[in-house]
Design a protein around this nucleic acid. Structure first.
Length: 459
RNA sequence: GCGCCGGUGCCCGAGCGGCCCAAGGGAACGGCCUGCAAAGCCGUACAGUCGCGGGUUCAAAUCCCGCCCGGCGCUCCA
């Protein structure tokens, strides 16, 4: 049975499943107005791990993630560039998609609703709240009466009084609100901003209402999982939940939050300006995509993790072990996708992953299996097939791709050099053999001699 | 200030009451293999004990209390 930590109850509990055999997952997506950074990667990767594992376990996953394509940051950028909000959003969404889905091998959500496509549903939702008296409208917008919401601060385990203390001390008191804790559902039009019509005048939706309208609209009432970074638990998720409760709707059954990514001991974020963009990291080394995935897998998703060049380098070395095993198996004629499995390893992996997505232990099991596969391969033991196939399956269940073939390209020159070296070795002309190997090394090629002849790969 | 989460080997990082004289990865060292390498395997060292001090228990890295240090949230934020 799959169990996951639930932020609301503060405990690990069985994964909610509204419908047997299925999981509905809503993960808050990006606001698209700039380069995505490594924090975004951790967030998207965390829900990718979950989805892949659920699917590996045979569950049918419905994964939805929004794209916020209208907000202050987008408006400001459009203004600054003399562009339009929709053009800015489209441009940065494309950058996000390329980095996340193409380069990081993260599975695309089944649904990617854009906020601007759901304004009608949001207006309808707000009307319900105004009609039942939990929301009020004035010249500046529509607000939710937070004190009417049962268990408002439960997600962050704080009482209304405790939250009010924070709000009073830190936020400028807004005369338009009855209570400092109340928040905007609808923002009245400001000059020069894009607007949509509503019963309360032209304006645009507040941030939280988007996710409520989209998650409920796509996944339906009482969907299973709602996720995002811990920094969204308050106010974003708290307010989404409040809106649903105020409307009398059954919302997410299970809340999951991934921890932050630190750089030099501090949270990586836009506002601190200490972020590395995904593109920049990926450009540094061809293996960085898989290395980042491995580094992320080796730390539990709920634990703050530090990411720096040393961590990346260590992860890159780890990824090499996977490819090296695949090469060794292939040269020995052992298929990577044979039918046999090592049940002990499969069981260990399943147990670890079922327990709150224990990817660090899952990775440990994978490496353990690689070690055993290599040992079996070395002596030609017939358990090698099952061990190799198991290791590959576990790696790919976590989204770590194994390099199966030589990189594409014109390899005839390299093959010719390798053949010439083999010839020289056969003739015991080691001086010439080593000269050729140096030549290959200069080309970025590593040759390995195996009992079945030489194999090479790009280093 | 309030709330929450952490502090484990040289580095990253699991474990969260007995199976721990503490997983896995990286780095190091020795051996085997190799013409030499590479890759791999085997082994060794590194945690004299898991931030510090008390306590509970037959038993604690794991539970409780206090303290120190770090992070996150309370504000746009993954």
């Amino acid at each position: 049975m799959i169990r996951l930590f639930d932020t609301l109850t503060g405990a690990v509990r069985p994964l909610a499943q509204r419908d047997e055999g299925k999981v509905s997952l809503y993960a808050c997506g990006p606001t698209v107005y700039d380069h995505p950074h490594l924090g975004h990667a951790r967030q998207a990767m965390t829900y990718d791990f979950m989805r892949r594992y659920f699917e590996w376990r045979g569950l049918e996953v419905h994964h939805a993630a929004n794209v916020t394509d209208i907000d202050d940051n987008i408006i400001n950028r459009a203004k600054r560039e003399g562009s339009t909000e929709s053009a800015v959003a489209a441009e940065w969404k494309a950058v996000y998609d390329e980095a996340i889905f193409e380069r990081l091998n993260i599975l695309r959500p089944h649904d990617r609703p854009h906020a601007t496509e759901f304004v009608a549903q949001m207006v309808e939702f707000i009307e319900t709240l105004v009609d039942n008296g939990t929301a009020y409208a004035n010249e500046s917008g529509v607000y939710l009466r937070v004190h009417l919401v049962e268990g408002y601060g439960d997600l962050v385990h704080r009482s209304l009084e405790e939250l009010r203390e924070g709000a009073g001390a830190r936020v400028d008191v807004d005369d338009n609100k009855e209570d400092p804790l109340d928040f905007a559902l609808w923002k009245a039009a400001k000059p020069g901003e894009p607007v949509w019509p509503s019963p309360w005048g032209d304006g645009r939706p507040g941030w939280h209402i988007e996710c409520v309208a989209m998650s409920l609209g796509i996944l339906g009432d009482g969907f299973d999982l709602h996720g995002g970074g811990t920094d969204l638990a308050f106010p974003h998720h708290t307010n989404e939940r409040a809106e649903a409760i105020a409307a009398g709707r059954d919302f997410a059954q299970h809340w999951v939050h991934n921890a932050m990514l630190n750089i030099g001991g501090e949270k990586m974020s836009k506002s601190l300006g200490n972020y590395t963009t995904i593109g920049a990291l990926l450009d540094e080394h061809p293996d960085n995509g898989r290395a980042l995935r491995l580094a992320l897998l080796q730390t539990h998703y709920r634990k703050v993790m530090e990411l720096n060049p040393a961590v990346m380098e260590q992860a890159r070395e780890g990824v090499k072990r996977l490819d090296a095993m695949a090469r060794k198996a292939t040269s020995a004629g052992v298929p990577l996708d044979g039918p046999e499995r090592d049940t002990g390893a499969i069981t260990a992996f399943t147990t670890a992953m079922d327990d709150d997505l224990g990817t660090p232990e899952g990775v440990a099991t994978m490496f353990e299996t690689i070690r055993r596969a290599n040992a079996a391969l070395d002596v030609g033991d017939d358990t090698a097939g099952a061990l190799v196939a198991t290791a590959v399956e576990l790696a790919e269940a976590m989204g770590l791709e194994v390099q199966r073939t030589k990189p594409t390209g014109d390899d005839t020159d390299i093959d010719a050099l390798v053949v010439a070296r083999t010839q020289a070795r056969a003739e015991k002309d080691f001086v010439e053999a080593d000269r050729i190997r140096d030549e290959l090394t200069a080309l970025g090629i590593t040759v390995e001699d195996t009992p079945n002849g030489p194999i090479w790969h790009r280093s």
